[in-house]
């Protein structure tokens, strides 16, 4: 496969107004990733999928990464090509912040394999994917409020029900019920 540097150059030529960046990977044997401009993500994804030399038709792994210190959440897509049998090309999208602007474009219209995985990111990380056909919680139940995979998630202190609570569980239960009383 072409190097990510080459792909970056070709993308910049094809989408001159899009801001695309090459992010280095600390692991020397692994490829760097491309940080895409969310406004152009769908067009770039379609380009990568249809380009004759790349044909990245297999978006295998789609996941989120929370970076509380840096102040954003990432969606990471690992792209391979089943036709050309090469890959991976890693593309990333970043939200503007972690609470008020957590909207990213959905790439499900391009790669159907992102369908359930973007729903999972929405559920566990709280990124809202615009253009996703069916954005609902998937692993947690519908009434659940928080996003458990975020780094600053605090588990509720009364989830651990024991018929005869003792030690730290008992302590937590007492604190919980005294707070709620």
């Amino acid at each position: 496969m072409e190097t990510p540097e080459n792909i970056l150059a070709r993308l910049q030529a094809a989408f001159p107004s899009a801001k695309i960046e090459l992010l280095p990977n600390g692991c020397p044997s692994q490829p760097p990733s491309l940080l895409l401009d969310p406004a152009f993500a769908c067009e770039i994804a379609t380009f990568l999928k249809n380009d004759a030399a790349l044909r990245l038709d297999h978006a295998t792994n789609v996941t989120g990464v929370d970076w509380p210190k840096e102040g954003y959440i990432e969606a990471v897509y690992h792209l391979f090509s089943m036709e050309k049998k090469h890959g991976p090309l890693i593309i990333r999208l970043r939200t503007a912040n972690r609470d008020t602007a957590v909207v990213l474009p959905s790439l499900t219209p391009v790669w159907r394999s992102a369908d359930l995985q973007e729903r999972e990111i929405f559920d566990l990380f709280g990124i809202k994917f615009e253009g996703h056909p069916d954005l609902r919680r998937i692993l947690m139940w519908d009434g659940f409020k928080d996003h458990p995979m975020r780094k600053d998630y605090v588990a509720p202190d009364d989830f651990e029900y024991e018929p005869t609570a003792h030690d730290d569980v008992l302590e937590r239960a007492q604190q919980h019920f005294s707070k709620n009383a």
């Binding site: 990977n25 692991c27 990471v76």
Partner: peptide
């Protein structure tokens, strides 16, 4: 304790492509 970096490793498990994505 791997140095900072990220990796995607995948194998052909009996059910399909089983991948592990790690950020160290």
């Amino acid at each position: 304790r791997p140095k900072a970096g990220e990796v995607y490793g995948r194998i052909e498990s009996p059910k399909g492509e089983l991948g592990f994505y790690l950020i160290a």
